[in-house]
Amino acid sequence: MKEFLKSLVWVDYFYMVFTDPRKLAAALMRESRSLPIGFVIPACVSIMDILAISLLGSQTPFFYIKITYGWILFFMLLVFQNILIGSLVDTAGQVLGHQGNIKNVINIMNYALFPRVLLLPAILIFSVFNFAPVFFYVLFSMALFAWSAAIVVQGLSEMHSAGLARAAAVFFMPFVLIGSVAFFAMVLTVVSIFGYFTA
């Protein structure tokens, strides 16, 4: 691991996140030591996100506790989210006839988060000039989510040697399923509550 860090190969991964996600996915699949480095990204993202959110409103001295300890909770949440979504995406891939490899999916998802660190410098500019920082926070968050999703889709396409449309289907299938389940659960709940009160 020490040699891997010294070789600075991991720096190339960060470069490939921006320039060539397919090449990144291929490199990540080849190098198992890239997995622990990948978990550094959610950690950086959680710190940057806390700072970006803190820029949007007035803070109390609690900010120092938030930035010292709060990011750990946020980091754990991000990792949990990646593992959960990664598992579902991997399952969806297997359902569609591809070979499953949850480790690679989670690894790609971790690296795909990297563009989110750009949220802080972007928000900092709008915050300093006090020019609708909340609006731009929401806008950039959505744009960066789309960017991350695009990286994962390209990574899945490379991983499963499938077309972009099929890779997108693998990635979005869990979201569609969860969305549908949540929608029908909500409809059932509303119907039950309505039925209870009108019975």
């Binding site: 710190i47 700072l51 970006a52 803190s54 820029l55 803070q59 930035i67 900092l124 300093v128």
Partner: peptide, 10 residues
Amino acid sequence: LSSVLAIIDI
């Protein structure tokens, strides 16, 4: 740098 600036700003 942006992190440091953000902390100073906050």
